[in-house]
Design a binder for these strands. Sequence first.
DNA 1: CGTTTTGTGTAAGATTTTGTAACTATATGT
DNA 2: ACATATAGTTACAAAATCTTACACAAAACG
Lengths: 240, 240
Amino acid sequence: MNDNGHILIVDDQREICDLVQEYLSGEGYRVSTAQDGTGMRKVMAQSPVDLVILDLMLPGEDGLTLARSLRQESTVGIIILTGRGEIVDRIIGLEMGADDYLPKPFHLRELLARVKSVMRRASSTAADKQSTPSRSKARFAGWNLDLSSRELFSPSGKEVRLTTGEFDLLSAFVNNANQVLTRDRLLDLARNREAGPFDRTIDVQVGRLRRKLEDDPQRPTMIKTVRGTGYIFTPPVDVN
Amino acid sequence: MNDNGHILIVDDQREICDLVQEYLSGEGYRVSTAQDGTGMRKVMAQSPVDLVILDLMLPGEDGLTLARSLRQESTVGIIILTGRGEIVDRIIGLEMGADDYLPKPFHLRELLARVKSVMRRASSTAADKQSTPSRSKARFAGWNLDLSSRELFSPSGKEVRLTTGEFDLLSAFVNNANQVLTRDRLLDLARNREAGPFDRTIDVQVGRLRRKLEDDPQRPTMIKTVRGTGYIFTPPVDVN
DNA sequence: CGTTTTGTGTAAGATTTTGTAACTATATGT
DNA sequence: ACATATAGTTACAAAATCTTACACAAAACG
């Protein structure tokens, strides 16, 4: 099963989320779900989304508002779901920048057709996306570090809270991946200060980071020790 | 269907609002409604309006007063609705700064014609608007901060009242999003004063803001602490 | 005007984060 | 294998931040 793209379903009805998720997963898409605007933002912060399927009727922030703010902040595809006969919503929805709409109830095959169509269009305009790399994120070994919001997400999508010091140190590693970094250099990068003669600060902090990042902190695979010199961050990093 | 603009109908008769809304929506406009002056301000605080269709007979604040205050505060288009034969009102209305007027009852087609005409004129003077970004608003993470009226709306659209100090601090953050700000700088931005040596003012005020803004004030996602330095406001902000 | 309410800064205690030091574990050279 | 250097781990103390309570000031109210 190849990865056709990442789709996010935003609907407060669990059953609909589950149903659609199951179906689209079977078609080779990676599918996330959220129940409201807040959840939607969380998912989008963690990993890039290609297409949002958005119910208009949501608790809290309503779907139209969400659609508009999505459009302003990104070039993600949007398909709007709306109750039967709410033609007004349809029109407004499309005005708000949705790429397509679908009245409920709908056939899954019908949804799939629209998903495909929007995805096709989106990929043809993908060139634009690159031109606006405003909010930088770094990805490595399934992990996701948002350098603007200072948040880290594990491969399973959970947020892992980092202290200021841990974040600064990890940033230093990520921005200088695949290079051996001395303790001196790390202290400079992460703390803007000089190292004293017996300064073990970095060692301790590396230990703390490893406990949060590594599967087996005793046998680290990402932050490796370079005996006699310092440390090196080994995973390939994709910066956004 | 493209977005021809945002129209706000202010009339205390629901039927009229609904009727006009449906019709104009069908013509490709985004349409909101309000029943009185208070409602009108709420809508305008939340999203920019291009044209207000205003009934002269309203409960509370009357239409003429509203029209005048609208004109003073913005360059929004105004069409006034007036009962039959109230010619005096017509004249006064136009003097007050309305762009057009329409006696009730009216045909929807007639209204549409005037809407189009006012919108056309408005867009030709749109250049001016840009040079006068007087009523600026900021949106972030679903929240909506009106910098002119000093009002804050939550993602669900509810108003959250801020004290002067809280508003000034939030403004400072919003206008300097995604940068680490020292307490000194924040005190300067928000209070125009210098920080004393043990000044914890900003800390306390940040705490108060977090209680109003954050889902979980203990684990803030918007106003993050940068230990040893200050704070950073992390959500992407779009200013209007 | 006096009274009440609301907002703001200060101070003190609680909590979290960080650095240091002591001890343990591991690697390296002989 | 042993000695030694280097790194990892843990516990604790110091520093920074967060929270709460309170006092005073300003504003709103009657």
